[in-house]
Design a protein around this nucleic acid. Structure first.
Lengths: 92, 92
DNA sequence: ACAATATTTAGATACTTGTATAAATATCTC
DNA sequence: GAGATATTTATACAAGTATCTAAATATTGT
């Protein structure tokens, strides 16, 4: 389990970005609009998420579209369930 | 979902501590032995884990015994599964 | 090629954090 | 109560990080 993954999840802004991407894919600008911080700061967060392989980016004309990489989330769930899940996780 | 939880998980030493506690409860000293850093540093990590409610501590004579708080882990699993789990999580 | 739009990268700064050493607290034994 | 052991708390510092502004890169349209 990569360290960058957990560090990426440690920031609330980044977790919020991930939750936004659950609904649908979004461009960097659409994501940045949702936050009171500078676009460049959001771009930095997107870079961290991409480095952790939690999201994937694809250029679409002048825009860059981000989407959730669900595969990695499944790995996270598995990590927690196998190591710490105990009983309760099985029927969640 | 509390911010302190994810920040607590972001450090590899702390994740290792949690994994050690999966096997059995351990005293602070037994935990500290496993790491190349100072006892006080491990104690700091234990404080972070306790603040995030990931572990519970109980004095036992001169020792302090730590145990995993599995309830919180179930919440973590649920967080990931409901928001990001997709299909793969269901039969993991 | 130029201007406009979208996004990232670079450089700076304030804040947080992981670690260390030293001091403090708690318990046990004599 | 003094000394030994176990652990935490206090203080300091280097490294990491979230944010900002400004500059750079990429694409589109005229």
């Amino acid at each position: 389990m990569d360290d960058s993954l957990f560090r990426a999840l440690a920031d609330p802004t980044r977790r919020k970005i991930l939750e936004l991407l659950t609904e649908r894919t979004l461009t960097a600008g659409e994501i940045a609009e949702q936050f009171p911080i500078a676009f460049a700061s959001v771009s930095h967060h997107l870079g961290v998420l991409k480095a952790a392989d939690l999201v994937a980016a694809e250029r679409e004309g002048q825009f860059i579209r981000y989407r959730l990489n669900t595969t990695v989330f499944q790995e996270v769930v598995r990590y927690f369930m196998t190591r710490f899940g105990g009983e309760g996780a099985k029927h969640a």
